[in-house]
């Protein structure tokens, strides 16, 4: 049981490390946000799953924490990125698809 928990916690740590590397190396705000939120969400899930494996009596509490992270982390990052787009932060290079181009300008005029 404890071996399983160590494996899960170390896997979570690897995801955290990848996320940190992405924050340092990614070229634009949007790609950095990917690294900063997706990697840390999965990293936290794995670490908490490791804690469940180590201490099964905390399961309910940890499931609650997991639920809060799943419910808040994506919402927070999407809101941040949305306001970044509205403030006119340019994506890296020339994106082939930009469904939002011109969308927010129109909305403001209405």
């Amino acid at each position: 049981m404890s071996v399983l928990s160590y494996i899960l916690i170390i896997a979570g740590g690897i995801f955290y490390a990848t996320g940190g590397l992405g924050l340092l190396r990614m070229p634009s705000l949007y790609t950095r946000a990917q690294a900063g939120t997706k990697a840390t969400t999965l990293g936290t899930m794995l670490t908490l799953a490791g804690v469940i494996a180590a201490r099964p009596e905390w399961t309910l509490k940890i499931l609650l924490i997991m639920f809060f992270i799943v419910a808040t982390n994506p919402v927070g990052s999407s809101t941040l990125i949305r306001s970044a787009y509205r403030s006119g932060v340019k994506p890296y290079g020339q994106p082939e698809v930009d469904d939002l181009s011109g969308f927010y300008g129109k909305e403001e005029e209405q």
Partner: peptide, 17 residues
């Protein structure tokens, strides 16, 4: 300012919690 759809929907779930 108008707020995003994702935030609007999830706030309804998160506020009571």
């Amino acid at each position: 300012r108008k707020s995003g759809f994702i935030l609007k929907v999830s706030s309804g779930i998160l506020f009571p919690l």
